[in-house]
């Protein structure tokens, strides 16, 4: 698994009220979690612009997680998570067309009470990304720019 020691870089955009709280709790109770996940806290999953995800991949993420409060009723701002579930399936398809494997992007819901679910997600996700190997978008762009006939 840890062949050639690849440690993926994973960016997680989490809403403040649910999944961020879960991640926080998982940390406090020292649940087993990989160190690969960098959490970026946003107020609501509905504030996660698809360009954040693209930018994360551009700037070196090997995988990206988006997670918020369970629909229908958990979102603190009412329907922010509705926005999320209308956008994310489309973003999934876009990423697929960009040639970014499905397993590099996860979106879903984890409530404040589901810390173990968060810990498990990070473990599974990190394992899958390790299997996929590095994405290295910048390196890829460079390679495709310099390759001349």
């Amino acid at each position: 698994m840890e062949e050639n020691g690849f440690e993926p870089r994973i960016i997680a955009f989490l809403c403040n009220w649910c999944t961020y709280a879960a991640a926080d709790a998982a940390g406090i109770s020292r649940m087993k979690q990989p160190l690969n996940v960098d959490v970026i806290r946003v107020m609501c999953s509905g504030r996660i612009d698809p360009s954040f995800v693209l930018k994360a991949f551009l700037e070196g993420a090997d995988g990206v997680i988006v997670s918020g409060c369970h629909p229908p009723g958990d979102c603190h701002y009412g329907e922010g998570n509705y926005k999320t579930f209308r956008r994310m399936p489309l973003l999934e398809r876009l990423l697929d067309q960009y040639g970014i494997e499905k397993d590099r992007f996860h979106w879903g819901w984890i409530s404040a009470a589901e810390a173990p679910k968060w810990a498990e997600l990070t473990r599974d996700f990190t394992r899958k990304i390790k299997e996929l190997g590095p994405l290295d978008w910048q390196g890829y762009l460079k390679e495709m720019e310099s390759k001349e006939a």
Binding site: D49, P50, S51, K55, R87, L90, L91
Partner: peptide, 12 residues
């Protein structure tokens, strides 16, 4: 910054 991302949100 990214027309496609913006459009994705608008369409959604």
């Amino acid at each position: 910054v990214d027309q496609g991302a913006k459009l994705l949100s608008a369409v959604a």
